[in-house]
Design a protein around this nucleic acid. Structure first.
Lengths: 211, 211
DNA sequence: AAATTGAACTTGACAATGTCAAGACCGGGG
DNA sequence: CCCCGGTCTTGACATTGTCAAGTTCAATTT
């Protein structure tokens, strides 16, 4: 067996065993610590205790790794939304509000991942795994709107506007809070903060009294 | 005089004369063509026809250059908002709507600059020039809200919610459209597109009938 | 059991990039 | 006329992503 060098943690065998998920975990850490700007492939490899070129055998390149991280992010976003939806009245309007709250809370809990997913331009949007995760996330909102209105956003222009408005407030608030541009709200204690978030996104949600 | 090399455009004098603004213009081009992900200092220098280290004498480093670009972006954002505000009824509510429309249109017209300004994490937020431009941009919305409600967002929690809601829809829609995630709307002809934008952001604007 | 095959991982190299230090150029004030 | 400080260039270095070639190892075949 070779000397792994002073900076690489010892590993019992030459082969790692489950390097792919180890790299994903390391990448998550790297992203959280360095942010997307200073995210480095070699840094990830070092964290995982492998040589600098090892990741290439599991991900095409840096963007491939970031693409996988992004897909994971979308799946976790949906999970987070469902947690809030479970604790909420089952009618479509309240479910839509809960999903929006979950979206914003996810962004507040994972700013770097949120930015990777929505505003880094690095994940490969044509990647099938990412595509699937994005579509599933998209479907949360679309399905609820379809229940609420009996039509999808593509069939009725009014529903399209409804969807755009709902998504825009939620996404906008998430982005603004995650980048700390509205500390008066993100600095509130969680309970009060969530109330404020609901009050804000409630503004642009489909107004049932108007129909 | 030295041979400027084959790839550098000829320059009559050793000193450029107005390299700072030439670099800014070159950086704008570089940003538009390569996007923030592949923005390169050396690329900017090449565009401006100077050596790779020349920019350092006018901007501390890459982020310094990007900071200046970002400040310029905020000033142009405000200009764009004022264009729309001029063609709109002077009451605060309609002015607020117009400023929102201008914000979204600016994002649609300059996606890379918009992303640099709001979601790149690269501009130095402590830079005085940038700070001033950001504050001026912020003030457009705050001032209108103050006129509308007779109080600023910091004085009244309700106004704070109002501001957050208005900013969130506008910013969210801008971000979503600029990254082409709602092509059904960004693909509309300009007139219809602007109508749709107004309909969407109108949802979360302060509702005067409710007070 | 021995050989082979191929995946997993390493090593070394290369080009591109940001940044620094040292020097060349040049205009304006002594 | 000289020199001095700002403007720009040159050359170097560390870091990064990626490629090519080699090494290690496990499983399958023979």
């Amino acid at each position: 067996m070779m000397d792994p060098g002073p900076d690489l943690p010892l590993r019992q065998s030459y082969h790692h065993g489950d390097l792919r998920s180890a790299l994903l975990a390391a990448a998550e850490q790297e992203l959280a610590e360095k942010g997307i700007e200073n995210f480095s492939m070699r840094g990830v490899a070092k964290r995982a205790g492998v040589s600098h070129a090892a990741p290439a055998h599991h991900f095409r390149d840096v963007n491939g790794l970031l693409t996988a991280l992004s897909a994971q992010g979308f799946r976790r976003l949906v999970e987070r939304q469902h947690v809030f939806m479970k604790d909420t009245k089952p009618d479509a309007w309240n479910q839509l509000m809960a999903s929006g709250l979950g979206y914003v809370v996810f962004a507040l809990e994972n700013p770097p991942v949120f930015r990777l997913m929505f505003s880094s331009g690095r994940p490969d949007l044509d990647d099938p795994e990412l595509k699937e995760a994005v579509d599933a996330s998209y479907a949360v909102m679309v399905d609820l709107l379809r229940i609420l209105h009996g039509a999808g956003p593509d069939e009725s222009p009014a529903v399209g506007i409804d969807m755009a408005a709902a998504w825009a407030v939620v996404h906008g608030l998430a982005d603004i809070l995650a980048s700390n541009r509205l500390p008066q709200i993100s600095g509130l204690p969680p309970q009060a903060r969530n109330m404020a978030i609901m009050a804000i996104i409630g503004r642009a949600m489909p107004d049932l009294t108007r129909r």
